[in-house]
């Protein structure tokens, strides 16, 4: 089994934890690095390894409200990868939290997930 992936968060990049034992992925924190490939590249590589065994479930929790365009691009690519794994039979599901009453953020997240057919919810974070 692959090792747990842990990427420390910074002021401008999220904490990322991909845990093969609990079958969870957590992305937590605002994201506006100069180069998002440095942040999300290792995660996308780790996901390929994570889904090597058939029928591997993954529960994704995203607590990241702000993304710059470089991050948005990498998140879009990551979601496309997750869609690919879901299509191959891996039970993938995602919850993306938005701050209470902030419909603009909610709309942004909906645009990200427009093409997704895996189960997901965009959920209001209670204060």
């Amino acid at each position: 089994m692959m090792k747990k992936l842990h990427i420390e968060g910074t002021r401008y990049s999220p904490r990322i934890e991909l845990d093969p034992e609990t079958r969870t992925l957590l992305i937590e924190g605002d994201s506006y690095p100069e180069n998002a490939v440095d942040v999300y590249g290792p995660l996308i590589t780790a996901l390929d390894e994570y889904f090597e065994q058939p029928n591997t479930p993954l529960n994704i929790k995203m607590l990241s409200f702000f993304q710059n365009t470089s991050s948005s691009k990498m998140i879009t690519d990551m979601l496309a990868r997750l869609q690919h794994f879901f299509d191959m039979g891996h039970p993938v599901e995602l919850t993306w939290f938005y701050p209470s009453d902030d419909l603009e953020i909610k709309d942004t997240f909906e645009l990200f997930l427009e093409d997704a057919s895996f189960p997901y919810s965009i959920t209001q974070l209670e204060e």
Binding site: P33, N35, D38, T69, S70, S72, K73
Partner: peptide
Amino acid sequence: QQQMRQGTISANGSAGL
């Protein structure tokens, strides 16, 4: 949206967005 889905990201993190 189109650039986001079909574009590529360069090594320095530029997505043209």
